[in-house]
């Protein structure tokens, strides 16, 4: 399912002294089944942007098209609900949304609300749990007995249970240790490969964006300031730094080496072993002026 923003603006607390413009004439396009990252510092408007996709916020001006539906300032709740049934959203610290007595019930909350075939989905829960890296023996346990990492996975499974056409991830790895972050990201990458939803991920971490996304939007002060493929974005390090953003450590290191040695890497997604091999070959071919 495609998502398209046309000239979308959003004003918070309209007509109060606290009025703020949270989105300013945003145009953005998310192609069906693609993975897009939205980057920006806290308060740049990233969360506001994605909350328009399932009608949690309505545009003050402009149109958000989701598939064949259009969301505008005056869109009826029926349309909003229809759109919502296609969209799954993993919020920051999603474990805070768990509430049922058992993991199973919590997983079925979404499908039930969205009028799906609950019996059918219930049969698939063991598989779903496995996909998020949990054992099916947890189904009858209370979500509040689980560890923090397990709770996060249950909450994520609760969103994936509806198998959404559009999957929105709002800093899904925040607060986890590096190992946990890697695992969660991998989980989403596998999911994406299998079910091909249109995935939109908000993140602070350039590393994550680089590993997962094929396209990036960079936001600042309620506007989209940069867009393009990750490599194009990283090429503009200065501009990023002006927005208090930095390129991934990996890209920094490789760029530094390029600068000092004059050797060019083919791209910046090389694994350490690949980068070392590439370097050795370049040196053997006499491509090193200064080492």
């Amino acid at each position: 399912m495609d998502v398209n923003f046309q000239e979308v603006s959003h004003v918070y607390m309209q007509k109060t002294p606290f009025e703020t413009l949270a989105l300013k004439n945003v145009n953005a396009y998310f192609r069906a089944s693609s993975v897009t990252a939205v980057i920006g510092r806290t308060g740049s408007g990233k969360s506001t942007l994605v909350q328009h996709i399932n009608g949690l916020l309505k545009p003050s001006a402009g149109v958000v098209s989701v598939g064949e539906h259009h969301l505008e300032a005056k869109t009826k709740r029926k349309t909003v609900k229809a759109v919502r049934s296609h969209v799954g959203m993993v919020f920051q610290y999603p474990e805070h949304q768990l509430f049922e007595e058992t993991v199973e019930k919590d997983l079925l909350f979404g499908p039930k609300n969205k009028g799906m075939d609950v019996a059918e989905i219930q049969k698939k829960l063991p598989e779903l749990l496995q996909q998020v890296g949990l054992s099916e023996s947890l189904l009858k346990r209370s979500p509040f007995e689980l560890s923090g990492g397990q709770m996060r996975r249950v909450a994520i499974a609760g969103v994936l249970a509806t198998n959404p056409d559009i999957l929105i991830l709002d800093e899904p790895t925040a607060g986890l240790d590096p190992q946990g972050q890697k695992e969660i990201l991998k989980l989403f990458m596998n999911w994406q490969r299998t079910y091909q939803p249109t995935t939109i991920m908000i993140t602070h971490q350039m590393e994550e964006a680089a590993a997962f996304a094929e396209y990036m939007y960079v936001m600042e002060d309620a506007e989209i300031k940069m867009q393009g493929e990750p490599e194009t974005i990283y090429a503009q390090r200065k501009k990023l730094q002006e927005m208090d953003l930095d390129i991934p450590e990996q890209v920094q290191v490789l760029q530094q080496i390029e600068q000092d040695s004059g050797i060019r890497f083919p791209h910046y997604q090389l694994s350490p072993a690949e980068a070392a091999d590439y370097w050795r070959r370049a040196v053997q071919n006499g491509g090193v002026p200064r080492v």
Partner: peptide, 24 residues
């Protein structure tokens, strides 16, 4: 199994190959 920052991983790989990368 600690997730080392990229530059350290690269440093290890380079060392294994017995080559020198001054920047690193």
């Amino acid at each position: 199994g600690m997730p080392l920052p990229y530059k350290y991983q690269l440093y290890q790989e380079v060392k294994k190959r017995r080559i020198d990368m001054r920047t690193l």
